[in-house]
Nucleic acid binder design. Sequence first.
DNA 1: GGTTGCACTTAGCATTTGCGTA
DNA 2: TACGCAAATGCTAAGTGCAACC
Length: 780
Amino acid sequence: MKLEKEKHDKREKKKIKLSSKDREKEPNGKHKPSSKVKQSDSPSAVSSSAVKCEAGDGDMHEDVKADPSERAQHDGHEKSGSLEINNNIEKNNNKQKTQSKSSKERHNRKEKSEQTADVKPVDGDSNQADEGQGCESEATRKQETDEPQAAAPVKIKKKKVKDEKSPDDKNQPSGKKRKKQSPEHDKAEKSKNIERDEDDKKKKKAKKEDKKDQESDKWKWWEEGKLSDTQKWSSLEHKGPYFAPEYEPLPDNVCFCYDGQPVKLSPATEEIASFYAKMLDHEYTTKEVFQNNFFSDWKEEMTPKESELIQTLSKCDFSQIHKYFVEKSEERKNMTKEEKQVLKDEASRLTEEYGYCLLDGHREKIGNFKLEPPGLFRGRGEHPKMGKLKKRIQPEDVAINCSENSKIPEPPAGHRWKRVQHDNTVTWLASWLENIHGRPKYIMLNPSSKLKGEKDWQKYETARRLKMRVNSIRKQYRRDWKSREMKIRQRGVAIYFIDKLALRAGNEKDDESADTVGCCSLRVEHISLHRRLDGQEYVVEFDFLGKDSIRYYNKVPVEKQVFKNLKLFIKYKDPEDDLFDRITTINLNKTLNESMSGLTAKVFRTYNASTTLQDQLNKLTTEDMTVEEKILSYNRANRAVAILCNHQRAAPKTFEKSMQLLQEKIQKKKEQIEEAKKELKEAKKAHKDAPSDKSKKLLEKKEKAVQRLSEQLKKLQLQETDREENKVIALGTSKLNYLDPRITVAWCKKHQVPIEKIYNKTQRDKFAWAIDMTDENFQF
DNA sequence: GGTTGCACTTAGCATTTGCGTA
DNA sequence: TACGCAAATGCTAAGTGCAACC
């Protein structure tokens, strides 16, 4: 009861903070009509809620909350029955849920909700023994025979050699087209060429050796033992973070204008103005919340004189500043190769100096060694803090973590660190508090590092352990659906959703963030119940904004008991009430941990994603396929996971155009094939009429041409299918975070697909442990 | 048992790089 | 060689979950 009250109070607090005016607005700032507000404002609406369900077990009103035309159907999804991804992401992701309620009404609602509780404790949970822990070592550890990284450096080398030509050489026509020169000139040219070739060879050799060194230097931490769960390192040394460059004031000819008059701003005020000016092209600056947050934070940084003068944002003219930055960006784009190379060299130097640390004697790459520069906060979705000023991080804000006996990083001249600590139970190198939410941020290692890799490996091992326990866990949550205790029923249904739909846990959120939810924080307004829908029984329609304000829309047939429970959970509740008001992620995870050590809601996502990949790969791959077809199968399996996990992306801006180009290419190829076939027919006839060696050769040539063109066509068509199917689906997130890489490596080895066709360089670095240790027999 | 802070993973968008093609 | 595009990489927001504390 107390828990429910607290949940309610929290929500209440949040609602008060977020003005109803803001909440009822569409992302574009326009007010949208809100029937839901009306409904909940009326006292008679108390039990009617946005969730429509039948009265009793009889016929049901089949109500769909949003315009069905807005929802793209996506069928054929095995796991959830019918997962639907909305193609119109931009539109739908920004869709805001209308919510408004007076606190008095909310209080009444809480009391009503209390009436629904059965509080007879039933001991339904069974503790189950743990299984093996930690990272299992693979039975077979095979050395990687391919050199997946070879391709890219060779190409770079080629280009470099080309670039190193003297200016004279650059202008010389090459090869056969060269004009005849004098013998002296030829001789000089020849010796030049020899020189160049030798130089080339030397460089190639050096590079090869470098690479060899790097390979042999590569730390195979997975072949060593782990320190302990708490101790993360024995020694850690680094250079500290790299600070963002100081602000460069605008040239005198670039003016900020207020009320039509040019105003020279102080450097601090001007810097913040430049943050806004840079974003003028972006939709953010059209949003009222963004504008208000920016303006109030900006005002705080102004001098008293500036603050007195600048009273309204609408009178501020940033256009000159905006133009200046656009021009600067153009200039950068139009730099010569040499100028670009200077910048590139400087960046490499920085990475070399700050981008690596020494961890237990091994050189490890740092993930983010550059401190975040100041700017304006860009939240995702309808974030109440968008537009606020992200302040410049000073050395005095930064805590350093390294070993006691190491060389302590030097703070910038005239400054000192916030503190220097030597805590080997954490993995971060530096940390600071960001000023928007007051939360800590960290500088940590790259995913290719031991610390990250080990944790990743462990994650997949936990998911594999779940595979062994999942049947008994499923039996248990089915039993819980019939518990006499409301809390246990809710928990049973929540775990069912987490398992079946790969929903996130849904922790309680602080008051000042976008209104997004996960499983445990679902509200009544996020589901609609349909006794029958599209020929299926007991359908739950989900519609809510999840992490990053990505819309989750799905119509799922569920078991009858789940459906009945959901009806019970929403009884006497209003749209904004919690669907699972008796549980939190903490007690849900506690229950899961009792079933299996290390089990949390998150593990189900990893487990279901990896299982789906393995099943789909088995189903979609056959031996007679070409490598291209196998890759398409892999992408399809990957896509099934991305759909399950609801990993969406905005369609690429150039999507339509590039598809059109591809289609034109396909058409052209088809025409070429037709032409080639005609020629083949003629060659056949010629050979039949007057057989000779020449005619035979010609015939063979034409046959090969048709075959080659047909293969090219097939490749293009596969590309077209793949691209179309990937339009709004992001494959990368699941590949990097949810799919046990050993499944991929085993599949590549079994089906002779080069690993670099599936994993790029970064991914191969991250999954080096899996690539090294996995053979083709690996089973998740 | 709940709250809070901290440490870490997961996530999509923005920017840069480099490849294929005209 | 320049250009346009897709892929790769970088950036940082937004989640999860644990442990200390009350």
